[in-house]
């Protein structure tokens, strides 16, 4: 026996309704639809044929749309939350571009990748990373919208907390930049601790040589982790309390001292990467020595520049600590 069209329609709607209300809503929908069918019969002055019955049901709407009208929430992310979500998505796109591009640029500089191949890898890597991050942001925003993720007074804000974009000196302190830096640091921490395998680890095994991490990295494993955690904390403070100038300055000074300490430990080690031949078809010893010397030299230049940058940041931190919170007129 063929199931009546109305029953079929209602069964399709019922399957999409919350269990607790299913029976109740379906009973009501049945009454509504029977009324509609009777109305149509009265209009035509005769019983409806199958085609006409179907037309009435079709006009009522697709089962997914009909069931959707009874849902508790009809928007994934509401208009209140949406601007914050879009802001986060834009930030995540920049983050995705940065975490995809930086290792590739390093790889290209080290000669492990040509520019054309790098562009293709950037596009595929960027798409995958961006989609994953946006997907995660959407799930989090939908969770906040439905109250599953409590945000408390996180979205509470004061005008005095807003970055003073009219003053170039404070541009670097915007919450957006702190959020971006925090994201990058968290990614670094999960990579450093081996919690996740980054799919785009730089290609360094070409041209007959491998670059392996120098032993100094093993020695400095914990200090680097602690430094990243400290820096992430500083970003978090900037993000949550941008007006807390002095606590931020203290954290920046401690992190700055930590970075200088790191440089002091790295300098005597003399190298960050060791060049080793790959397999039987490895490069000649002279080539390897040349590459190693070039790497060591670039390491010393880079570390020297970093020392100057970190010292200037320390000076800025000390100045802020002395000056304290800016007075808002």
């Amino acid at each position: 026996m063929t199931m009546d069209l109305l029953d079929r329609y209602l069964a399709a709607v019922a399957a999409l309704l919350p269990k607790a209300q299913r029976e109740d809503i379906v009973a009501e929908l049945r009454d509504i639809l029977l009324n509609r069918l009777e109305e149509k019969e009265a209009e035509l002055g005769r019983p409806l044929d199958a085609k006409e019955r179907e037309a009435v049901l079709r006009a009522f709407g697709h089962p997914i749309a009909v069931a959707g009208r009874y849902g508790a929430s009809r928007t994934l992310i509401g208009p209140e939350l949406y601007p914050f979500y879009m802001f986060a998505v834009k930030g995540l796109l920049v983050l995705a571009a940065a975490v995809t591009a930086i290792p590739l640029v390093i790889s290209i500089i080290l000669g492990g990748e040509d520019a054309a191949g790098g562009l293709a890898r950037f596009l595929s890597g960027f798409l995958a990373t961006a989609m994953t991050l946006i997907g995660a942001a959407t799930i989090v925003a939908a969770g906040i919208e439905r109250g599953w993720i409590p945000v408390g007074d996180l979205l509470d804000w004061k005008v005095a907390d807003l970055p003073n974009l009219g003053r170039p000196a404070r541009k670097a302190e915007t919450r957006f930049e702190a959020a971006f830096e925090l994201g990058v640091l968290l990614l670094f921490i999960v990579w450093w601790t081996g919690l996740v395998q980054i799919p785009w680890s730089p290609v360094v095994g070409q041209h007959g040589v491998f670059l392996t991490a120098a032993p100094i990295w093993t020695t400095l494993y914990l200090p680097i982790l602690a430094l990243a955690a400290l820096q992430a904390t500083a970003c978090l403070v900037t993000l949550v309390r941008p007006d807390a100038v002095r606590p931020r300055a203290v954290l920046e000074i401690v992190a700055g001292l930590g970075r200088l300490g790191l440089i002091a430990a790295l300098w005597p080690a003399g190298r960050l990467f060791t060049v080793v031949p790959s397999g039987a078809a490895g490069a000649k010893a002279a080539d390897i020595a040349g590459l190693q010397a070039a790497l060591d030299l670039s390491f010393h230049i880079t570390v020297g520049v970093m020392a100057v940058v970190f010292l200037s940041k320390l000076a800025v931190g000390a100045w802020r600590l002395a000056r304290g919170a800016p007075v808002i007129a």
């Binding site: 929908l29 509609r36 009522f60 709407g61 749309a65 009208r69």
Partner: peptide, 10 residues
């Protein structure tokens, strides 16, 4: 519209 009325009643 019925589609709006019945969910509104609920």
């Amino acid at each position: 519209d019925e589609g709006a009325l019945y969910p509104m009643l609920r």
